[in-house]
Amino acid sequence: MSHQRLLATESTWPTHRGKAYLSERVIMHGRDLHHELGDWHWHRLWLYSILGRDPGEQVAAMLNFFWVATSYPDPSIWPNHVTALAASARATASTSLVAGIAVSEASIYGRRPEVKALDFFYRAGRWCDEGKELEAFVDAEKASGRILYGYGRPLAKTDERIAHTMDKAQELGLAHGRFVRMAFDVHRHLENRFGYSMNVAAVNAALSADMGLSCQEYQLFASLAFTAGMVPCYLDARDQAEGCFLPVRCDSVVYHGPDKREWGAE
């Protein structure tokens, strides 16, 4: 490798993805934004921008529901909390939302569990394709020390979103795909063996696997999933007196560190 490949793209950026011919027209994935895509709902366009194809009404409606169902306008939810803190400190609206979106790429909720849960189902599918038992795959994952993303939930025993999601999947004819059935089979096994609950990340990932989304398509798709829930938290904190979002008194930071000491000459 060398700087030769920099020369190749120094002044030209060949692409199939899109281009804005300003004052004239805009092409996204080969289609005219205003003439061919202008009547689409924005969420469908969002999917098209990621996939480069129209996933169809049913898939779009299902994925739309993922977003709707996870738009919790509650500032106790961590990304929302960040947005509310920014609002309370009177950051701008976009900056407040960007902060919340950025911390949605977390390890104990949000993007990382979603990506890993989706990958889990794909790998489980390949395992089963070889004629092996699903339960053995789950046990092997557990034995290897891997976290089984989508099973268990940090602050709650049950996930109210699962029933709603499955109702919507039923309505859209997506409730009986291979990976959805697998998700519930995994849950039964984990519940019996370890008392694990299932959270919506498993169900959403399984539905996404049935749709054929890649892990990164899923990550990109979900990146704004919490945003509608953040906005009311922004508004709420904005409407209160500045700096007054769940303030923390000095004594509410419990100290476990070293005793007081002098900063003397060393």
């Binding site: 509410s252 560190g257 007081k260």
Partner: peptide, 12 residues
């Protein structure tokens, strides 16, 4: 609602 810290102490 409390936070925990192993390095920062504030006295009011």
């Amino acid at each position: 609602f409390v936070y925990h810290s192993h390095f920062w102490l504030e006295e009011p």
